[in-house]
Nucleic acid binder design. Structure first.
Lengths: 135, 135
DNA sequence: CTCGGTGCAAAGGGTTTGCATACAT
DNA sequence: ATGTATGCAAACCCTTTGCACCGAG
């Protein structure tokens, strides 16, 4: 195992750059547009379509994670593929990574109902430390 | 408390119909388009824009819940506002409600980091019982 | 040499919005 | 009477896609 990557897929500069851009964002959870902006610094002629295609591929290959958040139209990308949860500040929009504890209790409930659970997402919403300050 | 609903808001037939449509869907977690179709049966001239506006209002008033799912563009609406989790079948798209156990461990982690958590979403992905059958 | 990836630009779908009118209060 | 909600349609935003060319293998 471990060789399932790059079957007939080609290694292009654009792909490397998109991955690098997601990683460079650290814990910022960038949107495709933000990845695009960053990749452009190195390769000005890269196109947004290519960024989307490569993000899709990286997610499919499990090298990057995508997250859908309530109340936000665009997907966010995350270089941290180790399982973890997220906290979203409803005031400033900041997304904070959280070390995930044990698997959610809901997993056992789902399995008892006959479902096979392959992954899960836990997202918390509220006010972050900075946004709790009085106006 | 308890009177915070309908401050200056008007009670219209369209609003009542949108709410009724979401409730009538039971555990189907309908999209706005599906709510629209159902509402149309009673009031053919209702517009999609009105459905969206009323869904937004109902969510804001806490009378209906909205859920964003990975890999799906459209939001789903849920008449069950009592906290519960969801299982999404990645094969057939079915969404199953799950009785939620204790609050996720992540809540404590977030609070320890100074965040105030007001709500959370737990979504499980996998294959539902029916879709586990061999092809 | 091949055929998968790219750039460009247009299409797509879901959701929001501007405006004049209708109607709840 | 007053101003919010509606219907309609256009606008928006994010993402996907078709196509001809490019370049990794």
């Amino acid at each position: 195992m471990g060789s399932e990557r790059q079957e007939g897929r080609r290694q292009t500069r654009q792909l490397a750059l998109v991955l690098a851009a997601v990683r460079a964002a650290g814990t910022d959870h960038p949107t495709a547009e933000e990845v695009f902006s960053r990749a452009r610094l190195e390769l000005p002629q890269i196109s947004l379509g290519t960024v989307y295609r490569n993000l899709q591929r990286l997610v499919a290959e499990g090298r990057v994670a995508a997250l859908a958040l309530r109340g936000v139209r665009s997907l966010r990308y995350d270089p941290t593929i180790a399982p973890h949860d997220h906290f979203v500040c409803e005031v400033c929009g900041r997304i904070d990574d959280l070390a995930c504890g044990p698997r959610p209790a809901a997993v056992a409930v789902a399995e008892r109902k006959g479902h096979a659970v392959t992954s899960h997402a836990v997202v918390l919403y509220g006010r972050c430390g900075a946004c709790r300050m009085p106006a």
